[in-house]
Design a protein around this nucleic acid. Structure first.
Lengths: 121, 121
DNA sequence: TGAACATATGAACAAGTGTTCATATGATAA
DNA sequence: TTATCATATGAACACTTGTTCATATGTTCA
C-alpha cells in the first residue's frame, strides 16, 4: 500500500507513483545519508584537503603545516580539530610538539563501508 | 633552495624543514584542491545525496522527488540547480514536466580523474 | 619557580548555505 | 486568449562555517 499518512509539502500532483514507490524501497536511511553527507562536508574544504593530502605523505606537526600552507597556526589547529572529530587524523605529543597523522584504521573502515573510495592517481 | 620569499604567517619555528620540503613537492595544485573540495561540497548535503541516490535508480521529475522526500518543490528545484551547475545531473523537458537524470558522462569523467570512486554496496 | 614556546580554544565576524515565500516562466488545453 | 499546472528563480531569513585575534594550556629548560 502506498503511504497516505505523509504530509504533502509538494503542491503539485504526483506524476509517476510507480517510480516514487520503486525508488522509496531502495533509498538509504536518513541516518546513513546524514552520516555520509557529514563525511563529504569534511572533505569539502580546501584547507582540510590540503592537510589530508600532506599527511598522506608524512606525519607532520602543526607548525610544519602552518609553514607549508602559509596559514596561521590557529587556523590549522581549528581544522585539525574538525578532522580529529571526524576521526580522519590522530596525533601523539612529543614534548611541546604534537604530531598529526592519518587515522588509517578509521579511514579504512570508511572505505570498507563501500560508499566511497579515494585512490591515488 | 628553500623558499624564503614566502610570507610567514606561522608564528612558530619550523620544526622539520625536510618534511615540509618533501611534502611541498608532492602537493596537488591549489586549483586541483579547489576543484576537488568544490565537488565534495556538492555531495556534502543530505538533500542532494538523496536526489543523486534516487536518480541512480530512476529518472524522475521534480514533483516525484518533492513527493518522495516530502519537501517543497522549490527546495528540490534549487538543489537541482546546484547539481546541474556541477554537471552531476541533466534533464529533458516533456511538455510541462521536466525529467532529471544523472549526467553519466560527466560522472564517469570525474571518476576517470582518479581522485575518487563511489561504489554500490 | 618563571620564561619561552607549541598548540588549543573561545569569541567575534564576515561570508556562505539551505529553506521558504512570492512570483515568474513556459507549456498545455479549453 | 485565458486558466491551469510544472518548474524556476529572486529575495529574505536563520543558520553554519572558516578565519582571526586574544588568550589559555601544557611542556621544557634555565
Amino acid at each position: 500500500m502506498t503511504q497516505q499518512t505523509e504530509i504533502l509539502k509538494c503542491d503539485c500532483n504526483v506524476i509517476h507513483q510507480e517510480v516514487v514507490d520503486l525508488v522509496r524501497t531502495t533509498m538509504p536511511s536518513q541516518d546513513k545519508l546524514q552520516e555520509l553527507s557529514q563525511l563529504f562536508k569534511v572533505f569539502g574544504d580546501p584547507t582540510r584537503l590540503k592537510i589530508l593530502s600532506a599527511l598522506f605523505k608524512s606525519e607532520m606537526c602543526v607548525c610544519d603545516m602552518a609553514t607549508l600552507f602559509n596559514m596561521t597556526q590557529s587556523s590549522i589547529s581549528h581544522q585539525l580539530s574538525v578532522l580529529k572529530q571526524a576521526r580522519l587524523v590522530n596525533y601523539h605529543r612529543e614534548g611541546k610538539v604534537v604530531y598529526y597523522g592519518l587515522d588509517d584504521q578509521h579511514i579504512q573502515q570508511i572505505f570498507d563501508q563501500g560508499y566511497l573510495h579515494i585512490q591515488e592517481r
